[in-house]
Deep mutational scan, measured.
Amino acid sequence: MDVFMKGLSKAKEGVVAAAEKTKQGVAEAAGKTKEGVLYVGSKTKEGVVHGVATVAEKTKEQVTNVGGAVVTGVTAVAQKTVEGAGSIAAATGFVKKDQLGKNEEGAPQEGILEDMPVDPDNEAYEMPSEEGYQDYEPEA
């Protein structure tokens, strides 16, 4: 019985440690998101679009440190934060509304985080759909 109880105690310690790591990862992701939003706020009209992409990228980098179902929630929060940063930029006159959601080359930025393969159960990952990809044929 002692062996059984000791095993359960060790398992509990492992769960607590994993929860603490997840909590730490979420806190880091939130900190990076805040950094990115402050970065966007300090940019001029020309830099705002690039700044919004930076927020998304920093958040995406930190999301990889967070495991399990938390990833889905962090990704949703990050996307809403990026959308909010863009709205703030438009409201303050840093950028025109028609410039939001495009990178410096004018290509749409939507789907940055949505296409990231995420499995809350950590069982399997699927690649994003290939609808947006084109076949590449090298020139002879």
Rank of each mutant, 00 (worst) to 15 (best):
M5Q: 02
K10N: 06
G41M: 12
V16Q: 12
G47N: 12
T72E: 09
K58Y: 13
K102R: 01
N103C: 10
A89P: 07
D121T: 06
N103Y: 06
P128F: 13
E105R: 07
V40P: 00
V26N: 00
V66P: 01
T64W: 11
Q79F: 06
P120T: 03
G68R: 15
E123R: 14
D119K: 15
A56C: 08
N122G: 10
E131G: 02
A30K: 07
A85N: 02
E130N: 08
A85V: 07
T22H: 02
D115L: 08
D98S: 14
G73I: 13
E126W: 14
S129T: 08
G47T: 14
A124W: 10
V3M: 13
A140S: 13
G106M: 13
V118L: 12
V26A: 04
P138E: 09
V95S: 12
G106D: 02
D115F: 05
K80R: 07
E139P: 14
Y136R: 15
A107G: 06
L8G: 00
T59G: 06
E20N: 11
V16H: 11
Q134M: 05
P120R: 08
T72P: 00
K96I: 14
E20A: 10
Q99M: 13
A89L: 12
P128D: 07
Q99L: 02
M127L: 10
Q79A: 06
V3F: 15
S42P: 00
Y133G: 09
P108G: 09
V3I: 07
A90I: 05
E83Q: 08
L8I: 00
E61A: 13
T33D: 00
S42E: 09
Q79I: 09
Y136E: 11
T81A: 12
E131A: 02
G106R: 01
L8W: 15
T33Q: 00
E123Q: 08
E139V: 08
A91M: 14
D98G: 09
V77N: 03
A124K: 08
A69M: 15
E57I: 02
K96Y: 12
D135E: 11
L100E: 10
S129K: 05
N103V: 10
E83K: 14
D135S: 11
A76D: 06
V3A: 05
A107N: 11
Y133R: 07
G31K: 11
I88N: 00
A17E: 11
G31N: 15
N103P: 03
E114G: 13
T92H: 03
A30P: 01
V66F: 14
E123M: 07
A69R: 13
G31V: 05
P108D: 10
Q79D: 05
L113T: 06
G25S: 14
M5D: 00
A85P: 05
G84Y: 07
A76H: 12
P120S: 09
G36H: 15
K58C: 01
A91H: 10
E110Y: 13
A69H: 12
G36Y: 15
V118W: 13
H50L: 15
V66D: 01
E126K: 14
H50P: 04
M116E: 06
G84K: 10
Q134S: 13
T81L: 03
E61N: 03
Q134K: 15
Y125L: 10
I88F: 11
Y136M: 13
E83P: 07
K58I: 14
E131I: 13
E83R: 10
A85W: 03
V48M: 09
G25V: 01
Q79M: 03
T64G: 05
G25E: 09
E61H: 10
K12S: 06
I112N: 11
E126M: 07
A91F: 15
N65G: 10
G86N: 15
Q62V: 13
Y39C: 06
